[in-house]
Amino acid sequence: MSALIPFALSFPARPVRRVLRLAAAAALACASAAAAAQQPQSLPVRQLRAGMYLIQAEVASTEQTRELGLMFRERLAPNHGMLFIFDQPGTQCMWMRNTLIPLSVAFIGDDGAIVNIEDMAPQTENSHCAARPVRYALEMDAGWFAKRGFKAGSKLEGIPGVR
C-alpha cells in the first residue's frame, strides 16, 4: 500500500508547507504587480490653462511613465488629462495600446502653441504623430479640444519649460 502514497506526501510535512507558502506568496506578488500596473500611477499633477479652461494634467516625463500613459484607465475626470514631456523636440507619435477610452492628443511646441490635434480610437496601435518636431503632447477625452474651439495655433499656459 505504501507504493500508492503520492510522492509529495512521503516528505516531512513542514518543508512541503514552507514550499507551498513560498509559492502562494510568489503568486500573490505577481498578481499584485499585474494589478498595480493596471491602476493609475501616482504622477505629479500640473494645472494648465487653455483659454478660460483649467486642466489638471498628470505629468509623464520619464520613458516608463510616457510608455504607460493612460493605459487601463476606464475614464478621465472632467478637464483632466496627461501631459507628456519629452527630453528633446522630435516628431513625437502616440498610440492607444491597452488604452480603454477614446482620446484626443494635442502636440505642443516649445512656445506653448498647439501644432496639431489628432483623435485616437481606443485599443489601437495606429501612430498619431506631430506635424513637426515638438517636446510636449497633451491627451484629453476625445473631442475635448474641438468642443472648446482649440485648434493649431491655440496656446496653452502652465507647461513646464515653455517660454
Rank of each mutant, 00 (worst) to 15 (best):
1 M>G: 15
2 S>L: 15
3 A>L: 14
4 L>K: 04
4 L>M: 03
5 I>T: 05
10 S>N: 12
10 S>G: 12
11 F>H: 05
13 A>D: 13
14 R>K: 12
16 V>I: 13
16 V>Q: 07
16 V>M: 11
17 R>N: 11
19 V>M: 12
19 V>L: 15
23 A>G: 15
23 A>V: 14
25 A>L: 14
26 A>L: 14
27 A>F: 04
27 A>T: 06
27 A>R: 06
28 L>H: 02
29 A>R: 09
30 C>H: 13
31 A>Y: 12
31 A>E: 14
35 A>H: 01
37 A>N: 13
38 Q>A: 15
39 Q>F: 05
40 P>E: 01
41 Q>I: 08
41 Q>H: 09
45 V>M: 06
49 R>G: 12
50 A>I: 02
51 G>R: 07
53 Y>K: 10
55 I>A: 05
55 I>P: 01
59 V>D: 07
60 A>C: 09
62 T>N: 13
65 T>S: 14
65 T>M: 03
68 L>D: 07
68 L>G: 04
71 M>G: 02
72 F>C: 00
73 R>G: 02
74 E>Q: 15
74 E>W: 13
74 E>N: 15
77 A>M: 09
79 N>V: 11
81 G>H: 00
81 G>K: 00
82 M>P: 07
83 L>F: 08
83 L>W: 00
84 F>D: 03
84 F>P: 03
85 I>C: 05
86 F>A: 07
86 F>H: 08
91 T>D: 06
92 Q>A: 06
94 M>V: 04
95 W>D: 00
95 W>S: 03
95 W>A: 02
98 N>T: 02
98 N>A: 09
98 N>C: 01
99 T>V: 00
100 L>H: 14
100 L>G: 10
102 P>H: 07
102 P>D: 08
103 L>H: 12
103 L>K: 06
105 V>D: 04
106 A>N: 02
106 A>H: 06
108 I>E: 04
108 I>F: 02
109 G>Q: 10
109 G>P: 09
112 G>Y: 10
115 V>I: 15
116 N>F: 04
116 N>T: 05
118 E>A: 01
118 E>L: 01
120 M>V: 08
122 P>G: 03
126 N>D: 15
129 C>K: 06
130 A>M: 03
131 A>N: 12
133 P>C: 05
136 Y>K: 04
136 Y>P: 04
141 D>N: 14
144 W>C: 07
145 F>S: 08
147 K>I: 14
149 G>M: 01
152 A>V: 02
153 G>N: 00
153 G>E: 08
163 R>F: 01
